[in-house]
């Protein structure tokens, strides 16, 4: 296997802490927050993260496939989750300590509950508003109620972190800067 070429493209308005492990070809969009101790590995193809995402501590995002792993806008990856999905839409929440396999493609407004394992053996696309919860990873569809409030909270959260994180943490810049 060819060695992994590192190429980090970090938007000037993204906040990526110094203590973050990056490997491979990674693009991070504007207003995205990456907390310290997160890991983003583009082993196979590149990873492209959109705008306004939050990646918390000890999150692991891995792309083992050859194709580009696209993560949309306004997604929240909570502490210690592990995500290998080849594509993720917008406004999803992946909760604390959950795992999502490379066989799953996520649409928009999905929620994966705390500690859930989403590991189907065959390829699968999660529809919009799917909620996965409980120890057996049961599924339901969210009515979409409170969507505006949720989006508002996410937006304010990003704004807060944008202001506070640089005060206490060193930031990382992309290659081009």
């Amino acid at each position: 296997m060819a060695p992994i070429r590192d190429k980090f493209t970090i938007h000037s308005k993204a906040i990526v802490c110094q203590d973050v492990e990056l490997k491979g070809d990674i693009t991070i969009g504007s207003g995205t927050i990456v907390h310290p101790k997160a890991t983003i590995f583009a082993i196979g193809g590149p990873i492209v993260i959109g705008t306004g995402c939050i990646v918390e501590e000890s999150v692991i995002i891995v792309n083992r496939r050859k194709e580009v792993m696209r993560i949309g806008d306004d997604n929240l990856f909570e502490i210690g989750c592990r995500v290998e999905c080849p594509s993720i839409g917008n406004s999803n929440t992946i909760s604390t300590r959950s795992r999502v396999h490379h066989t799953v493609r996520m649409s928009s407004h999905c929620v994966v509950g705390a500690g859930c394992l989403v590991v189907p053996t065959e390829d699968e696309i999660l529809d919009d508003y799917t909620v996965i919860y409980g120890p057996d990873a049961q599924r339901r569809t969210w009515s979409g109620r409170g969507k505006v409030q949720e989006a508002d909270l996410r937006r304010k959260h990003v704004e807060y972190l944008k202001e506070m994180l640089p005060k206490f943490n060193r930031l990382r810049r992309g290659d081009g800067q």
């Binding site: 501590e57 210690g80 909270l153 304010k156 807060y160």
Partner: peptide, 15 residues
């Protein structure tokens, strides 16, 4: 991982 909780209260986001 020890991290304070957050919420919005009266429209203001805070930890």
């Amino acid at each position: 991982v020890m991290r304070p909780p957050y919420k919005t209260y009266r429209g203001a986001f805070n930890y």
